[in-house]
Design a protein around this nucleic acid. Structure first.
Length: 453
RNA sequence: GUGAUUAUAGCUCAGCUGGUUAGAGCGCUGGAUUGUGGUUCCAGAGGUCGCCGGUUCGAACCCGGUUAGUCACCCCA
Protein backbone atom coordinates (compact mmCIF):
# COMPACT_ATOMS: atom_id res chain seq x y z
CA UNK A 1 0.00 0.00 0.00
CA UNK A 2 1.01 3.55 -0.59
CA UNK A 3 1.85 5.27 2.70
CA UNK A 4 -0.03 8.43 3.57
CA UNK A 5 -1.17 10.49 6.53
CA UNK A 6 -4.56 12.14 7.11
CA UNK A 7 -5.06 15.53 5.56
CA UNK A 8 -4.14 18.47 7.70
CA UNK A 9 -1.58 16.43 9.65
CA UNK A 10 2.18 16.42 9.31
CA UNK A 11 5.28 14.43 10.10
CA UNK A 12 8.22 16.31 11.55
CA UNK A 13 11.83 15.60 10.65
CA UNK A 14 14.55 15.79 13.31
CA UNK A 15 15.48 19.26 12.09
CA UNK A 16 11.88 20.44 12.33
CA UNK A 17 11.40 18.98 15.80
CA UNK A 18 14.52 20.76 17.02
CA UNK A 19 13.25 24.05 15.63
CA UNK A 20 9.77 23.53 17.03
CA UNK A 21 11.20 22.72 20.44
CA UNK A 22 13.20 25.91 20.29
CA UNK A 23 9.94 27.84 19.90
CA UNK A 24 8.19 25.87 22.63
CA UNK A 25 11.13 26.25 25.01
CA UNK A 26 11.35 30.00 24.44
CA UNK A 27 7.65 30.44 25.10
CA UNK A 28 7.65 28.14 28.11
CA UNK A 29 10.59 29.84 29.76
CA UNK A 30 8.85 33.23 29.52
CA UNK A 31 5.66 31.75 30.95
CA UNK A 32 7.57 30.39 33.91
CA UNK A 33 9.31 33.71 34.46
CA UNK A 34 5.93 35.40 34.76
CA UNK A 35 4.83 32.95 37.40
CA UNK A 36 2.68 30.52 35.45
CA UNK A 37 2.47 26.80 36.22
CA UNK A 38 2.00 23.92 33.79
CA UNK A 39 -0.99 21.64 33.52
CA UNK A 40 -2.00 19.03 30.98
CA UNK A 41 -5.42 17.73 30.07
CA UNK A 42 -6.49 14.67 28.05
CA UNK A 43 -6.61 14.58 24.28
CA UNK A 44 -10.26 13.55 24.54
CA UNK A 45 -12.96 15.36 26.44
CA UNK A 46 -16.55 14.36 26.90
CA UNK A 47 -18.35 15.68 23.88
CA UNK A 48 -20.81 17.48 26.13
CA UNK A 49 -17.92 19.50 27.58
CA UNK A 50 -16.99 20.76 24.14
CA UNK A 51 -20.24 21.22 22.24
CA UNK A 52 -21.84 24.63 22.27
CA UNK A 53 -18.69 26.41 23.46
CA UNK A 54 -17.39 27.53 20.10
CA UNK A 55 -20.55 28.54 18.31
CA UNK A 56 -22.41 26.67 15.63
CA UNK A 57 -19.42 26.70 13.31
CA UNK A 58 -17.18 25.32 16.02
CA UNK A 59 -19.47 22.39 16.71
CA UNK A 60 -19.12 21.32 13.09
CA UNK A 61 -15.35 21.43 13.39
CA UNK A 62 -15.17 19.17 16.43
CA UNK A 63 -13.63 15.77 15.88
CA UNK A 64 -15.94 13.17 17.36
CA UNK A 65 -14.65 9.86 18.66
CA UNK A 66 -16.82 6.87 17.83
CA UNK A 67 -17.92 4.85 20.85
CA UNK A 68 -16.16 1.55 21.46
CA UNK A 69 -17.76 -1.78 20.78
CA UNK A 70 -21.05 -2.21 18.98
CA UNK A 71 -21.82 1.49 18.81
CA UNK A 72 -24.75 1.05 16.45
CA UNK A 73 -26.64 -1.06 18.98
CA UNK A 74 -27.36 2.03 21.04
CA UNK A 75 -27.77 4.40 18.11
CA UNK A 76 -30.77 6.65 17.96
CA UNK A 77 -33.08 4.67 15.65
CA UNK A 78 -35.06 7.66 14.45
CA UNK A 79 -31.99 9.76 13.65
CA UNK A 80 -30.37 6.82 11.89
CA UNK A 81 -33.42 6.14 9.73
CA UNK A 82 -33.73 9.83 8.87
CA UNK A 83 -29.99 10.04 8.09
CA UNK A 84 -29.85 12.92 10.55
CA UNK A 85 -26.12 13.04 11.26
CA UNK A 86 -26.09 15.70 13.93
CA UNK A 87 -29.02 14.07 15.70
CA UNK A 88 -27.27 10.71 15.61
CA UNK A 89 -23.95 11.88 17.03
CA UNK A 90 -24.86 12.02 20.74
CA UNK A 91 -25.95 8.38 20.65
CA UNK A 92 -22.84 7.04 18.92
CA UNK A 93 -20.05 9.37 20.11
CA UNK A 94 -19.69 10.44 23.70
CA UNK A 95 -16.15 11.80 23.34
CA UNK A 96 -14.43 14.36 21.15
CA UNK A 97 -10.91 15.68 20.58
CA UNK A 98 -10.20 18.98 22.27
CA UNK A 99 -10.71 21.99 20.03
CA UNK A 100 -8.68 24.42 22.10
CA UNK A 101 -7.04 24.56 25.52
CA UNK A 102 -9.24 27.19 27.12
CA UNK A 103 -12.45 25.20 27.53
CA UNK A 104 -10.67 22.13 28.94
CA UNK A 105 -8.89 24.52 31.28
CA UNK A 106 -12.20 25.95 32.49
CA UNK A 107 -13.39 22.39 33.08
CA UNK A 108 -10.15 21.66 34.96
CA UNK A 109 -10.55 24.71 37.17
CA UNK A 110 -14.08 23.78 38.17
CA UNK A 111 -13.15 20.17 38.91
CA UNK A 112 -10.10 21.17 40.94
CA UNK A 113 -11.45 24.34 42.54
CA UNK A 114 -10.78 23.14 46.06
CA UNK A 115 -7.09 22.47 45.49
CA UNK A 116 -6.39 25.58 43.45
CA UNK A 117 -5.12 28.84 44.94
CA UNK A 118 -6.72 31.77 43.14
CA UNK A 119 -5.68 33.71 41.15
CA UNK A 120 -4.61 30.55 39.35
CA UNK A 121 -1.97 31.12 36.69
CA UNK A 122 -1.42 28.24 34.34
CA UNK A 123 0.27 27.56 31.06
CA UNK A 124 -0.43 24.64 28.76
CA UNK A 125 1.31 23.53 25.57
CA UNK A 126 -0.51 20.71 23.84
CA UNK A 127 -1.97 19.82 20.45
CA UNK A 128 -5.56 20.57 19.53
CA UNK A 129 -7.68 19.29 16.63
CA UNK A 130 -10.10 20.97 14.27
CA UNK A 131 -11.90 19.30 11.36
CA UNK A 132 -11.25 22.34 9.19
CA UNK A 133 -10.31 22.38 5.53
CA UNK A 134 -6.55 22.74 5.69
CA UNK A 135 -4.70 25.48 3.84
CA UNK A 136 -1.61 27.62 4.24
CA UNK A 137 -0.76 27.98 7.93
CA UNK A 138 -3.80 25.93 8.85
CA UNK A 139 -3.84 22.35 9.94
CA UNK A 140 -6.23 19.85 11.49
CA UNK A 141 -3.72 19.03 14.21
CA UNK A 142 -1.71 21.85 15.68
CA UNK A 143 -0.18 23.01 18.93
CA UNK A 144 -1.43 25.83 21.05
CA UNK A 145 0.59 27.48 23.77
CA UNK A 146 -1.81 29.05 26.23
CA UNK A 147 -1.36 31.17 29.33
CA UNK A 148 -4.40 32.03 31.37
CA UNK A 149 -5.13 33.38 34.79
CA UNK A 150 -8.48 32.81 36.45
CA UNK A 151 -9.98 34.11 39.65
CA UNK A 152 -9.20 37.78 39.31
CA UNK A 153 -10.71 40.79 37.58
CA UNK A 154 -7.52 42.76 37.85
CA UNK A 155 -6.34 44.47 34.71
CA UNK A 156 -2.72 43.99 35.71
CA UNK A 157 -3.06 40.61 34.05
CA UNK A 158 -4.05 42.15 30.74
CA UNK A 159 -0.97 44.33 31.00
CA UNK A 160 1.18 41.36 31.98
CA UNK A 161 -0.03 39.27 29.04
CA UNK A 162 0.88 42.07 26.66
CA UNK A 163 4.36 42.03 28.18
CA UNK A 164 4.54 38.28 27.64
CA UNK A 165 3.65 38.67 23.97
CA UNK A 166 6.28 41.36 23.66
CA UNK A 167 8.99 39.36 25.37
CA UNK A 168 8.39 36.08 23.54
CA UNK A 169 8.37 37.61 20.09
CA UNK A 170 11.38 39.75 20.88
CA UNK A 171 13.29 36.64 21.93
CA UNK A 172 12.23 34.81 18.79
CA UNK A 173 13.30 37.75 16.67
CA UNK A 174 9.92 38.42 15.07
CA UNK A 175 8.76 42.04 14.92
CA UNK A 176 5.05 42.03 15.67
CA UNK A 177 2.04 44.26 15.87
CA UNK A 178 0.02 43.73 19.04
CA UNK A 179 -3.57 44.78 18.54
CA UNK A 180 -5.85 45.60 21.38
CA UNK A 181 -9.57 46.12 21.67
CA UNK A 182 -12.38 45.52 24.11
CA UNK A 183 -15.62 43.68 23.59
CA UNK A 184 -17.33 46.26 25.74
CA UNK A 185 -16.28 48.94 23.29
CA UNK A 186 -17.87 46.94 20.50
CA UNK A 187 -20.97 46.42 22.62
CA UNK A 188 -21.03 50.14 23.26
CA UNK A 189 -20.77 50.79 19.56
CA UNK A 190 -23.74 48.52 18.87
CA UNK A 191 -25.70 50.36 21.56
CA UNK A 192 -24.71 53.77 20.28
CA UNK A 193 -25.76 52.72 16.79
CA UNK A 194 -29.06 51.47 18.15
CA UNK A 195 -28.54 47.87 17.09
CA UNK A 196 -27.65 46.00 20.31
CA UNK A 197 -29.35 42.86 18.98
CA UNK A 198 -27.18 42.74 15.88
CA UNK A 199 -23.94 42.93 17.80
CA UNK A 200 -22.54 39.71 16.30
CA UNK A 201 -23.40 40.62 12.70
CA UNK A 202 -21.79 43.98 13.21
CA UNK A 203 -18.55 42.69 14.71
CA UNK A 204 -18.14 39.95 12.12
CA UNK A 205 -18.50 42.55 9.39
CA UNK A 206 -16.11 45.12 10.84
CA UNK A 207 -13.57 42.42 11.63
CA UNK A 208 -13.10 42.15 7.86
CA UNK A 209 -12.42 45.86 7.36
CA UNK A 210 -8.75 45.52 6.42
CA UNK A 211 -9.61 42.71 4.02
CA UNK A 212 -12.70 43.96 2.18
CA UNK A 213 -12.57 47.71 2.86
CA UNK A 214 -15.23 50.08 4.10
CA UNK A 215 -17.44 49.44 1.05
CA UNK A 216 -17.36 45.71 1.67
CA UNK A 217 -18.23 46.17 5.33
CA UNK A 218 -21.08 48.48 4.42
CA UNK A 219 -22.41 45.95 1.92
CA UNK A 220 -22.20 43.05 4.35
CA UNK A 221 -23.96 44.97 7.11
CA UNK A 222 -26.73 46.07 4.74
CA UNK A 223 -27.23 42.43 3.75
CA UNK A 224 -27.59 41.56 7.42
CA UNK A 225 -30.32 44.21 7.72
CA UNK A 226 -28.42 46.85 9.66
CA UNK A 227 -30.09 50.20 8.88
CA UNK A 228 -28.34 53.11 7.17
CA UNK A 229 -28.67 55.31 10.24
CA UNK A 230 -26.75 52.82 12.35
CA UNK A 231 -24.16 52.46 9.65
CA UNK A 232 -23.42 56.16 9.66
CA UNK A 233 -22.56 56.03 13.35
CA UNK A 234 -20.51 52.86 12.95
CA UNK A 235 -18.59 54.30 10.05
CA UNK A 236 -17.75 57.41 12.03
CA UNK A 237 -16.46 55.34 14.94
CA UNK A 238 -14.39 53.07 12.71
CA UNK A 239 -12.38 56.07 11.59
CA UNK A 240 -11.31 56.74 15.14
CA UNK A 241 -7.71 55.89 15.88
CA UNK A 242 -7.28 56.73 19.53
CA UNK A 243 -9.06 55.71 22.69
CA UNK A 244 -9.48 59.32 23.83
CA UNK A 245 -11.59 60.21 20.79
CA UNK A 246 -13.90 57.35 21.60
CA UNK A 247 -15.11 58.60 24.93
CA UNK A 248 -17.51 61.39 23.87
CA UNK A 249 -19.29 59.04 21.47
CA UNK A 250 -20.23 56.69 24.26
CA UNK A 251 -22.00 59.25 26.42
CA UNK A 252 -25.15 57.13 26.13
CA UNK A 253 -23.48 53.76 26.59
CA UNK A 254 -22.34 52.69 30.01
CA UNK A 255 -20.78 49.51 28.62
CA UNK A 256 -18.85 51.44 26.03
CA UNK A 257 -17.46 53.81 28.65
CA UNK A 258 -16.42 50.88 30.79
CA UNK A 259 -14.55 49.38 27.88
CA UNK A 260 -12.76 52.65 27.25
CA UNK A 261 -11.85 52.91 30.92
CA UNK A 262 -10.42 49.38 30.92
CA UNK A 263 -8.26 50.06 27.90
CA UNK A 264 -6.99 53.27 29.48
CA UNK A 265 -6.11 51.47 32.70
CA UNK A 266 -4.20 48.73 30.89
CA UNK A 267 -2.13 51.22 28.92
CA UNK A 268 -1.57 53.13 32.12
CA UNK A 269 -0.11 50.03 33.79
CA UNK A 270 2.31 49.67 30.92
CA UNK A 271 3.51 53.25 31.16
CA UNK A 272 7.18 53.56 31.93
CA UNK A 273 7.83 49.98 30.84
CA UNK A 274 8.60 50.34 27.17
CA UNK A 275 7.78 47.45 24.85
CA UNK A 276 9.96 46.34 21.95
CA UNK A 277 6.96 45.90 19.70
CA UNK A 278 4.24 48.24 18.60
CA UNK A 279 0.97 48.01 20.48
CA UNK A 280 -2.08 49.63 19.00
CA UNK A 281 -5.73 50.08 19.70
CA UNK A 282 -7.78 48.67 16.85
CA UNK A 283 -11.51 48.99 17.02
CA UNK A 284 -11.94 46.63 14.07
CA UNK A 285 -10.46 43.75 16.07
CA UNK A 286 -13.39 41.50 17.01
CA UNK A 287 -12.27 37.86 17.33
CA UNK A 288 -14.65 35.07 16.67
CA UNK A 289 -14.83 33.05 19.86
CA UNK A 290 -17.97 34.25 21.52
CA UNK A 291 -16.91 33.66 25.11
CA UNK A 292 -14.81 36.83 25.23
CA UNK A 293 -16.36 39.63 27.27
CA UNK A 294 -13.66 42.23 27.91
CA UNK A 295 -10.29 43.07 26.52
CA UNK A 296 -9.22 41.18 23.38
CA UNK A 297 -5.79 40.78 21.81
CA UNK A 298 -4.38 39.71 18.53
CA UNK A 299 -0.81 39.50 17.28
CA UNK A 300 0.39 39.61 13.71
CA UNK A 301 3.85 39.72 12.22
CA UNK A 302 4.58 43.37 11.59
CA UNK A 303 3.36 44.43 8.17
CA UNK A 304 5.76 47.36 8.10
CA UNK A 305 8.77 45.12 8.79
CA UNK A 306 7.67 42.29 6.49
CA UNK A 307 5.44 43.75 3.78
CA UNK A 308 5.60 40.60 1.66
CA UNK A 309 4.64 38.17 4.39
CA UNK A 310 1.15 36.79 4.11
CA UNK A 311 0.15 35.09 7.31
CA UNK A 312 -2.86 35.30 9.58
CA UNK A 313 -2.64 36.05 13.25
CA UNK A 314 0.06 34.24 15.22
CA UNK A 315 -1.54 34.80 18.59
CA UNK A 316 -4.72 35.93 20.20
CA UNK A 317 -6.69 36.01 23.39
CA UNK A 318 -8.83 38.00 25.72
CA UNK A 319 -10.88 38.15 28.88
CA UNK A 320 -13.80 35.85 29.45
CA UNK A 321 -15.83 36.90 32.46
CA UNK A 322 -17.76 33.72 32.97
CA UNK A 323 -16.38 30.71 31.18
CA UNK A 324 -16.57 28.44 34.22
CA UNK A 325 -20.23 29.10 34.94
CA UNK A 326 -21.39 26.53 32.39
CA UNK A 327 -19.60 24.00 34.55
CA UNK A 328 -21.29 25.32 37.67
CA UNK A 329 -18.72 27.74 39.06
CA UNK A 330 -19.85 31.35 38.95
CA UNK A 331 -18.04 34.64 39.24
CA UNK A 332 -14.63 33.42 38.21
CA UNK A 333 -13.22 35.79 35.66
CA UNK A 334 -10.35 34.73 33.47
CA UNK A 335 -8.04 36.22 30.91
CA UNK A 336 -5.57 34.49 28.67
CA UNK A 337 -3.65 34.46 25.44
CA UNK A 338 -2.53 31.85 22.99
CA UNK A 339 0.51 31.48 20.78
CA UNK A 340 0.05 29.78 17.41
CA UNK A 341 3.26 27.78 17.39
CA UNK A 342 2.69 26.38 13.90
CA UNK A 343 2.28 29.76 12.33
CA UNK A 344 5.18 31.15 14.31
CA UNK A 345 7.25 28.32 12.85
CA UNK A 346 6.08 29.12 9.33
CA UNK A 347 6.81 32.81 9.81
CA UNK A 348 10.30 32.11 11.16
CA UNK A 349 10.97 29.71 8.31
CA UNK A 350 9.87 32.25 5.74
CA UNK A 351 11.92 35.01 7.32
CA UNK A 352 14.88 32.66 7.83
CA UNK A 353 15.11 33.39 11.52
CA UNK A 354 16.30 29.96 12.63
CA UNK A 355 19.98 29.63 13.48
CA UNK A 356 21.64 27.27 11.04
CA UNK A 357 23.68 25.38 13.62
CA UNK A 358 20.67 24.23 15.58
CA UNK A 359 20.54 20.73 14.14
CA UNK A 360 23.93 19.30 15.11
CA UNK A 361 23.59 17.31 18.27
CA UNK A 362 25.98 14.48 17.38
CA UNK A 363 29.58 15.48 18.13
CA UNK A 364 31.63 12.62 16.77
CA UNK A 365 31.18 9.58 14.56
CA UNK A 366 33.51 6.59 14.98
CA UNK A 367 34.58 4.59 11.95
CA UNK A 368 36.15 1.16 12.05
CA UNK A 369 38.18 -0.12 9.13
CA UNK A 370 38.03 -3.83 9.85
CA UNK A 371 36.22 -6.34 12.05
CA UNK A 372 38.67 -6.23 14.98
CA UNK A 373 38.69 -2.46 14.86
CA UNK A 374 34.89 -2.50 15.12
CA UNK A 375 35.02 -4.12 18.54
CA UNK A 376 37.81 -1.79 19.65
CA UNK A 377 35.80 1.19 18.38
CA UNK A 378 32.71 0.01 20.21
CA UNK A 379 34.67 0.12 23.47
CA UNK A 380 35.97 3.61 22.73
CA UNK A 381 32.39 4.62 21.91
CA UNK A 382 31.40 3.56 25.41
CA UNK A 383 34.19 5.64 26.94
CA UNK A 384 33.14 8.73 25.00
CA UNK A 385 29.52 8.34 25.96
CA UNK A 386 30.48 7.83 29.58
CA UNK A 387 32.23 11.20 29.38
CA UNK A 388 28.92 12.69 28.18
CA UNK A 389 29.98 13.16 24.60
CA UNK A 390 27.32 12.60 21.96
CA UNK A 391 28.99 9.87 19.97
CA UNK A 392 27.95 7.29 17.42
CA UNK A 393 29.60 4.40 15.60
CA UNK A 394 29.12 3.34 11.99
CA UNK A 395 27.89 -0.23 12.50
CA UNK A 396 29.96 -1.97 9.84
CA UNK A 397 33.60 -1.72 8.80
CA UNK A 398 32.73 -0.96 5.18
CA UNK A 399 34.53 1.22 2.71
CA UNK A 400 35.55 4.54 4.10
CA UNK A 401 33.82 6.42 1.31
CA UNK A 402 30.50 5.10 2.41
CA UNK A 403 31.18 5.88 6.07
CA UNK A 404 32.32 9.39 5.22
CA UNK A 405 29.19 9.94 3.22
CA UNK A 406 27.13 8.96 6.20
CA UNK A 407 29.15 11.34 8.39
CA UNK A 408 28.33 14.17 6.00
CA UNK A 409 24.67 13.28 6.03
CA UNK A 410 24.68 13.37 9.84
CA UNK A 411 26.47 16.74 9.77
CA UNK A 412 28.97 15.53 12.32
CA UNK A 413 31.76 18.00 13.13
CA UNK A 414 34.32 15.24 13.86
CA UNK A 415 34.97 11.67 12.84
CA UNK A 416 37.25 9.25 14.62
CA UNK A 417 39.10 6.77 12.39
CA UNK A 418 40.09 3.47 13.90
CA UNK A 419 42.21 0.83 12.09
CA UNK A 420 45.15 -1.40 12.91
CA UNK A 421 47.54 1.56 13.16
CA UNK A 422 45.39 3.27 15.78
CA UNK A 423 44.90 0.07 17.75
CA UNK A 424 48.67 -0.52 17.93
CA UNK A 425 49.55 2.98 19.12
CA UNK A 426 46.39 3.79 21.09
CA UNK A 427 46.36 7.15 19.32
CA UNK A 428 43.15 7.66 17.39
CA UNK A 429 42.84 9.75 14.24
CA UNK A 430 40.45 12.62 14.91
CA UNK A 431 39.36 14.36 11.74
CA UNK A 432 37.73 17.75 11.63
CA UNK A 433 35.09 17.38 8.94
CA UNK A 434 34.93 21.04 8.14
CA UNK A 435 38.62 21.86 7.77
CA UNK A 436 39.75 18.35 6.81
CA UNK A 437 42.53 18.53 9.41
CA UNK A 438 43.43 15.32 11.15
CA UNK A 439 45.45 14.61 14.27
CA UNK A 440 46.36 11.59 16.35
CA UNK A 441 45.22 11.86 19.94
CA UNK A 442 44.75 9.65 22.95
CA UNK A 443 41.19 8.97 24.03
CA UNK A 444 41.71 11.23 27.07
CA UNK A 445 42.76 14.14 24.85
CA UNK A 446 39.81 13.52 22.59
CA UNK A 447 37.41 13.58 25.53
CA UNK A 448 38.92 16.83 26.69
CA UNK A 449 38.82 18.42 23.25
CA UNK A 450 35.21 17.46 22.65
CA UNK A 451 34.11 18.43 26.14
CA UNK A 452 35.08 22.03 25.54
CA UNK A 453 32.14 24.06 24.31
C1' G B 1 -20.16 23.92 3.44
C1' U B 2 -18.61 26.83 -1.59
C1' G B 3 -14.99 27.53 -5.51
C1' A B 4 -10.26 26.96 -8.18
C1' U B 5 -6.21 23.92 -9.22
C1' U B 6 -2.84 19.73 -9.29
C1' A B 7 -1.75 14.22 -9.59
C1' U B 8 4.29 11.32 -14.43
C1' A B 9 10.94 7.47 -11.08
C1' G B 10 12.40 7.53 -3.85
C1' C B 11 12.21 13.45 -4.21
C1' U B 12 11.51 18.06 -7.41
C1' C B 13 9.62 18.46 -12.06
C1' A B 14 9.72 18.44 -18.00
C1' G B 15 6.90 15.90 -21.72
C1' C B 16 4.94 20.37 -28.27
C1' U B 17 -1.73 20.53 -32.14
C1' G B 18 -2.84 12.83 -29.47
C1' G B 19 2.07 9.21 -32.88
C1' U B 20 5.64 4.08 -32.13
C1' U B 21 11.14 2.60 -26.93
C1' A B 22 7.97 8.43 -21.35
C1' G B 23 12.82 12.15 -20.02
C1' A B 24 16.05 15.54 -16.74
C1' G B 25 18.19 17.05 -12.09
C1' C B 26 18.84 15.34 -7.21
C1' G B 27 19.09 10.80 -4.46
C1' C B 28 20.41 5.47 -4.55
C1' U B 29 23.91 1.22 -6.18
C1' G B 30 28.61 -0.08 -8.48
C1' G B 31 33.25 1.61 -10.63
C1' A B 32 37.58 5.28 -11.65
C1' U B 33 40.10 5.23 -5.99
C1' U B 34 41.75 -1.89 -1.11
C1' G B 35 43.16 4.17 5.01
C1' U B 36 39.99 9.62 3.78
C1' G B 37 34.00 12.70 2.55
C1' G B 38 31.45 17.09 0.62
C1' U B 39 34.21 18.39 -6.36
C1' U B 40 34.63 15.46 -11.04
C1' C B 41 33.96 11.36 -14.62
C1' C B 42 31.70 6.51 -16.20
C1' A B 43 27.96 2.78 -15.66
C1' G B 44 23.44 0.75 -13.49
C1' A B 45 18.81 -0.05 -10.97
C1' G B 46 14.14 2.30 -10.53
C1' G B 47 7.61 4.25 -13.70
C1' U B 48 0.37 -0.49 -14.67
C1' C B 49 1.90 8.38 -16.21
C1' G B 50 -3.55 8.60 -9.02
C1' C B 51 -7.81 5.13 -10.03
C1' C B 52 -12.26 3.57 -13.28
C1' G B 53 -14.55 4.11 -17.80
C1' G B 54 -15.15 6.49 -22.75
C1' U B 55 -13.54 8.69 -27.69
C1' U B 56 -9.64 7.13 -31.34
C1' C B 57 -6.11 3.01 -35.91
C1' G B 58 -3.33 5.00 -31.65
C1' A B 59 -4.15 8.38 -25.06
C1' A B 60 0.58 10.65 -19.96
C1' C B 61 -1.98 14.28 -23.36
C1' C B 62 -9.02 14.71 -25.30
C1' C B 63 -13.99 13.63 -22.54
C1' G B 64 -16.89 11.76 -18.13
C1' G B 65 -16.57 9.95 -13.30
C1' U B 66 -13.84 8.99 -8.81
C1' U B 67 -10.07 9.47 -5.01
C1' A B 68 -6.24 12.31 -2.83
C1' G B 69 -3.28 16.74 -2.22
C1' U B 70 -2.80 22.08 -2.52
C1' C B 71 -4.82 27.05 -2.55
C1' A B 72 -8.80 30.65 -1.76
C1' C B 73 -13.75 31.80 0.60
C1' C B 74 -16.53 30.90 5.32
C1' C B 75 -14.27 30.53 9.95
C1' C B 76 -9.92 30.44 12.57
C1' A B 77 -4.14 29.65 15.35
Amino acid sequence: MKPSIPKGTRDFTPEQVIRRNYIFDTIKQVFIKYGYQPIETPVMENLATLTGKYGEEGDKLLFKVLNNGDFLAKADEAALAAKDSSGLIPSIAKRGLRYDLTVPFARFVVMNQNEIAFPFKRYQIQPVWRADRPQKGRYQEFYQCDVDVVGSDSLVYEAELIQIYDEVFTQLGIAVEIKLNNRKVLNGLAEAAGIPNQFMDMTIAIDKLDKIGMEGVRKEMLEKGIPETAMAIIEKVLNIKTIAELKPLFAQSETGLKGVAELTTILDFLEGQPLQNNISFDITLARGLNYYTGCIFEVKASATHYPKLRMGSIGGGGRYADLTSVFGLNNVSGVGISFGAERIYDVMEELQLFATSMAQSLQVLLMALDETALKYAFQKLGQLRKANINADLYPEPTKMKKQMKYANARQVPYVLLIGSEEMNTGLLSLKNMESGEQQKLSIEDIVQKLSMP
